[in-house]
């Protein structure tokens, strides 16, 4: 650990790997990870739907675990690996999960979709064949106001079979 770690600073240069690309930026200590992604890196795929950490629209994978990027400071992510919705598809080639979302009409306005995909991706990596209850529990932290979750659950289930 660098010596400067022991000093409290108002802003700091951080290095974060996002979707395989390393970014180095100076950020204010108070900056949330979601604002770092959206405003500093222009990765606007992750969204913001609340201000209390309830909606999950900002969900990203953080060192492999799904987290809400509005409940973390960007400085905390120094040295971490982050995956966002922009990193899922291989170029224009959608993942099976993304294709399943469109086949099952699992998105309407699409605003919750990036966070939903990240939660589902984390689930399927850990548990390729989840039960319906496990699917629901895995996306419980992602609110959707359009679909009633019916087709989202279906889409995840279909890709896991």
């Amino acid at each position: 650990m660098e010596a400067s770690a022991a000093t409290a600073v108002r802003s700091k240069t951080i290095t974060v790997e996002v979707n395989g690309v390393e970014y180095e930026r100076e950020v204010e200590a108070r900056r949330l990870l979601i604002h770092f992604l959206r405003d500093d890196l222009d990765l606007t795929g992750s969204h913001i739907g609340c201000d209390t950490g309830n909606c999950g629209a900002c969900s990203v994978l953080y060192d492999g675990l799904v987290v809400k990027s509005c409940m973390m400071l960007a400085v905390q992510a120094d040295g971490a690996k982050v995956e966002t919705v922009e990193g899922l598809a291989d170029g224009n080639e959608l993942t099976d999960l993304q294709r399943s979302f469109t086949a099952h009409h699992a998105l309407q306005c699409g605003y919750c979709t990036p966070g939903m995909l990240m939660s589902a991706t984390a689930l399927l990596r850990e548990k390729p064949h989840p039960t319906e209850d496990e699917i629901r529990k895995a996306i419980q932290g992602n609110l959707c106001r359009c679909t009633g979750y019916v087709n989202i659950v279906e889409a995840i289930r279909a890709v896991s079979q």
Partner: peptide, 8 residues
């Protein structure tokens, strides 16, 4: 869907 699924 395609753009929305890719965060685009």
């Amino acid at each position: 869907d395609k753009r929305l699924l890719q965060g685009a």
